[in-house]
């Protein structure tokens, strides 16, 4: 297999809040076009690490390179290279679908022409043409979620960060959402995703599992299941992630 390009490089990342170590010497690489699952128990330090990777928080020590940029020194540059979507996605409920596209396109500095192009592209793709002038608050949750994903992709980022993107949605919509993820990855976008659904961990190319601020396991789902003698990723997770206050 040919050498894959590394798009995220994390080496000995440490983040402390006072005497509490939220991230304890994290070291891992993510490859371009990979779907990387970032798993862990509540309070394991996932959100802290995600904030650092996306330039929102500075590491206490260690090296973090994202899309060729040193995050500690150029957090603003990183933000242009990445997209971010969380479960509590920040779309504007009192703007229409189209206006949300224009707003996000504007934030990322796309030209008016480019915004029109990208808006059309996604409306066609999601089959949402008839919704374009509808206020966002009147759109079902499942559609909103797909829309949020598209908006996070509007500037063609190298990496898209998804923080529990499928919480609470029905099993069909959850699967449709994953098809969008697969498609983005197939086109070379790297997908960095957290989830509490362990069946979704199986959809990732590789996953890491965090506990107490450390990465306790990292590898392909199949390899992890073999390594821990477990039938499912849920069992692997239960073996690794213990609840610690």
């Amino acid at each position: 297999m040919s050498q894959r390009e590394t798009i995220i490089e994390v080496k000995d990342l440490v983040k402390k809040f006072g005497s509490f170590t939220a991230n304890d010497r994290l070291t891992f690489d993510v490859y371009r076009g990979e779907i990387f699952g970032f798993l862990g128990a509540n309070g394991a330090g996932k959100t802290t690490a995600m904030k650092i990777l996306s330039g929102l928080s500075r590491p206490t020590s260690g090296k973090v390179m994202v899309a060729g940029i040193d995050v500690s020194h150029h957090p603003e540059k990183v933000k242009r290279k990445i997209g971010y979507m969380s479960q509590f996605f920040s779309l504007y409920n009192d703007m229409t679908v189209k206006e949300n596209f224009r707003f996000y396109g504007g934030i990322y500095g796309l030209s008016a022409k480019k915004i029109r192009e990208r808006t059309q592209f996604y409306l066609d793709k999601l089959d949402m043409k008839s919704y374009e002038n509808m206020l966002l608050k009147n759109i079902p949750l499942g559609w909103k979620q797909k829309l949020a994903f598209s908006l996070a992709n509007i500037h063609n980022p190298d990496i898209i960060f998804l923080d529990e993107p499928t919480g609470g949605v029905d099993p069909i919509t959850r699967r449709q959402f994953w098809e969008l993820i697969y498609e983005a990855a197939d086109q070379g976008t790297t997908v960095f995703v957290t989830t509490h659904y362990m069946d979704e961990a199986e959809y990732c190319e590789r996953v890491s599992i965090m506990s107490e601020g450390q990465i306790k396991a990292l590898g392909k789902p199949k390899a992890l299941k073999e390594q821990f003698g477990a039938a499912t990723m849920n069992d692997v997770f239960l073996k690794i992630a213990r609840n610690v206050e």
């Binding site: 919480g167 609470g168 509490h196 992630a241």
Partner: peptide, 11 residues
């Protein structure tokens, strides 16, 4: 158990 990890859910 919404938003709760697999370990805590089990407990």
């Amino acid at each position: 158990t919404t938003g709760v990890d697999a370990v805590s859910r089990k407990e």
